[in-house]
């Protein structure tokens, strides 16, 4: 479990992270969502003791990172896949990490195998493609078989196959009961990967909720209803307190109701339905609506 308590980071007069508190539970993938520059990476660096918080603290299984004995056995992190010396082989990179935390040499081979880099283990890491570097980073994170895993934008720049691989990989790690925190600036990606979301903007917590709840809440669920008897159904729905608007092609757009509720009402009153379909706004729109005020750098488009 990860607990951030009143985490704050200031660079001079700029506040990068502002009194951020949230918890990350084991057993599921938690998405750490926010636009670029929201303070996600800074927060993750503070979690790992790399940056010093101006105020507040982070506890990992009840302890600050620098109090952990052999920390790689508790926490695995992939903040940047390029944190490797380009002239050092993948195996040497993992070897010094393993030695530093008293891990047996066979762990190096095991994690290389797990991420599929066994073939290129002796090659210089500098020659790796982004996908391979990302795999090496994940191998390093898994080295100590840690209970807590942190990934910062792990799918950035990857091809669809790589994205799918990482997504499945993280879900499997969570299914094994580990705590997995993944940052991203793409809600659509997080919708597929994470079951819990911590959303921040301009360093402040916007919300923490389950992904489904967040999407429902932020996209607003309207239902499109088509029926030859709309004249009868419309007033019934209004009586129930739902908001009814005229949709396209003579259909009705009902918000505040689920398709189940509308179907039940129609059946109870003998109304024939031709279409009953839940409509979702795009995730991107919803995300921008929520974090719109909290984007660090606005671009003026078309002005």
């Amino acid at each position: 479990m990860i607990e951030a308590i009143g985490l704050t980071k200031r660079y001079g007069r700029t506040v990068a992270v502002d009194d951020l508190s949230f918890t990350v539970q084991p057993g599921r993938v938690t998405g750490f969502l926010g636009p670029n520059g929201a303070g996600k990476s800074t927060t993750m660096r503070m979690m790992l003791g790399l940056d010093r918080p101006t105020a507040g603290r982070v506890l990992i299984d009840g302890k600050p990172y620098d109090q952990l004995h052999r920390p790689l056995r508790t926490v695995g992190a992939l903040l940047d896949a390029k944190w490797v010396h380009p002239n050092r082989s993948a195996r040497s990179h993992l070897k010094w990490l393993a030695v530093s935390n008293g891990l047996p040499a066979k762990r190096v081979d095991a994690v290389l195998e797990a991420v599929g880099l066994t073939q290129v283990a002796g090659k210089k890491a500098g020659g790796f493609s982004l996908g391979m570097s990302q795999r090496l980073g994940i191998a390093a994170a898994l080295l100590g078989d840690p209970k807590v895993l942190l990934f910062d934008e792990p799918v950035n720049g990857l091809d669809p196959e790589g994205i799918l691989w990482i997504r499945t990989f993280m879900q499997n790690l969570a299914a094994e009961g580990r705590t997995v925190l993944v940052s991203s600036h793409l809600l659509s990606e997080m919708a597929l990967t994470a079951s819990e979301l911590v959303v921040i903007g301009k360093g402040k917590l916007i919300t923490q909720s389950s992904t489904a709840e967040f999407i429902d809440r932020s996209t607003g669920n309207s239902v499109l209803v088509r029926s030859p008897q709309l004249f009868k159904l419309g007033p019934l729905l209004v009586d129930k307190g739902f908001t009814v608007r005229d949709g396209a092609d003579g259909a009705l757009s009902v918000s505040g109701a689920t398709s189940d509720q509308i179907g039940d009402i129609a059946a109870a009153n003998g109304v024939v339905l031709h279409e009953l379909s839940p409509q979702r706004g795009s995730l991107e729109e919803a995300f921008m609506q929520l974090t719109g005020d909290a984007v660090e750098y606005h671009a003026e488009i078309g002005k």
Binding site: G49, L50, Y65, A77, K82, W83, H85, L97
Partner: peptide, 18 residues
């Protein structure tokens, strides 16, 4: 300086917080 250049110093401090 190469550790700073390639950020392996961060990997080092992750492995050895002291």
């Amino acid at each position: 300086t190469t550790e700073y250049r390639f950020s392996t110093i961060r990997a080092t401090f992750l492995a050895v917080p002291g």
